[in-house]
């Protein structure tokens, strides 16, 4: 009789936990699923470059013929009106485009004289090694808050720099000859106004020989 009672109790307890389990067993992520969640900065940068960055040149960049005289007149006001840059600090960026005549060409830069009406100003298009966050942060199109791991966000900088170095700059080097007129679009980082504005140093996103 005692055995029967024990068996009934066991069945009741087993039935209870069948419907109200103490814990659930779930399958761990497979290696493929985990790999799918790994961030691919190169792929992101490629998509961003063609899908957002290049189209933004016509819609969002400030014209060099507007920006350069504005900086010359009042750097603080120009910064307030035209710059990008999230967070706390002194560094800021410009997303700028325009046309200019090449006045000098070296391994690290092509100097362009931008003329508009009576105004004349110079920009330096960078053609050496490219470092830093200007292409990532210079347009205001990417927001660090959208990336849960800042390492991914930083990897985008290196990937964008690589695209500029491997595609845009070699083409510019071929085109750039003193006297040539060149359309350019790119981003400039201003860390120290005493040096970085004289002239503005632009990392190119696009250049076209005109």
């Amino acid at each position: 009789m005692r055995v029967v009672r024990c068996l009934i109790a066991l069945v009741v307890v087993a039935g209870f936990f069948r419907f109200f389990p103490l814990f659930h067993v779930e399958r761990l992520k497979t290696a493929a699923e985990q790999a799918a969640t790994v961030f691919n900065a190169q792929q992101f940068a490629e998509t961003f470059w063609t899908g957002k960055l290049l189209p933004a040149i016509s819609s969002s960049s400030v014209k060099a013929a507007v920006l350069l005289p504005a900086i010359k007149a009042d750097a603080a006001a120009a910064r307030k009106k035209y710059s990008h840059g999230a967070g706390l600090g002194d560094t800021y960026f410009y997303f700028v485009s325009g046309s200019g005549r090449a006045t000098s060409v070296s391994d690290d830069e092509v100097s362009l004289r931008v003329t508009d009406g009576g105004n004349e100003a110079e920009v330096s298009i960078q053609t050496g090694l490219i470092f830093g966050d200007a292409l990532r942060d210079g347009t205001g199109l990417l927001n660090p808050s959208d990336f849960s791991n800042s390492q991914n966000f930083n990897d985008i900088s290196a990937a964008l720099d690589h695209i500029a170095e491997s595609r845009v700059i070699p083409a510019l080097r071929k085109q750039a000859k003193v006297g040539a007129t060149i359309f350019f679009a790119g981003c400039a980082e201003v860390d120290d106004e005493s040096t970085d504005l004289k002239p503005l140093k632009v990392i190119p996103i696009q250049t076209v020989l005109q």
Partner: peptide, 26 residues
């Protein structure tokens, strides 16, 4: 220091370590 989630903390104030070390590297 950050946490690897954007839906947990109300805000995260983080040193830009990468940009700082680009300058140090240069």
């Amino acid at each position: 220091r950050e946490i690897n989630a954007t839906d947990a903390a109300t805000a995260q104030l983080l040193s830009d370590n990468y940009a700082g070390c680009v300058k140090l590297g240069q």
